[in-house]
Amino acid sequence: MRRTLAALAVGLVATSAAAQELKVGFVYVGPIGDFGWTYQHDQGRLAVEQAFGDRVETTYVESVPEGADAERVIRQLAASGHGLIFTTSFGYMDATAKIAEQFPDVKFEHATGYKTAANLAIYNARFYEGRAVIGTIAGRMTRTNRIGYIASFPIPEVIMGVNAATLAAQKVNPDVEMTVTWVNSWYDPGREADAAKALIAQGIDVIMQHTDSPAPVQAAAEAGALAFGQASDMRRFGPEAHMTAIIDDWAPYYVKRVGQVLDGTWESTNSWAGFAEGEVVMAPYWNMPYEVAVEAADLERAIRLGRTHPFEGPVVDRDGAVQVPEGETASDAHLLSMGYFVQGVVGDLPK
Rank of each mutant, 00 (worst) to 15 (best):
E279N: 14
T269D: 14
V280M: 09
L349T: 06
P284M: 04
A19I: 12
A333K: 12
G347H: 09
I122N: 15
G25F: 03
E101W: 01
V292F: 03
H309E: 07
G135K: 03
M282I: 06
V172G: 00
L84D: 09
E328P: 10
Y285P: 11
D194A: 14
H41W: 11
Y253C: 11
P156E: 00
R126D: 07
G25H: 01
G320Q: 11
L84N: 03
T88R: 08
M93K: 08
A293V: 10
A201R: 06
L199R: 03
D298E: 15
A227M: 09
A118V: 07
G81K: 01
R55A: 12
T211Y: 00
G130Y: 00
A14L: 10
T181C: 05
R55S: 12
T329N: 06
A111F: 13
E279V: 13
A51S: 05
I99M: 03
T265K: 10
Y114P: 00
I155A: 05
D298A: 15
S89L: 12
K171Q: 13
V27F: 10
R126P: 01
T87G: 11
A220F: 05
E312I: 07
H309N: 14
A79R: 09
Q218S: 15
A227S: 13
V64Q: 02
H210R: 08
A118W: 01
H334L: 15
S232Q: 10
Q209Y: 04
T59F: 12
S271N: 13
E157Q: 12
V342R: 09
M141C: 07
A330R: 08
V172K: 00
L305Y: 12
S185I: 02
G229S: 07
Y187H: 13
Y285I: 06
T244H: 02
R318K: 14
D105M: 11
A125L: 14
G148L: 07
F26Q: 03
Y290R: 15
T166L: 09
M234D: 05
A333V: 12
E157D: 14
T88W: 02
M160Y: 02
T87E: 08
I99V: 15
R301I: 02
R45T: 08
L336K: 15
A70F: 01
Q50M: 10
A195D: 02
Q40Y: 07
G190S: 12
P156G: 00
G347M: 09
Q20A: 13
R235C: 06
F52K: 02
L77F: 01
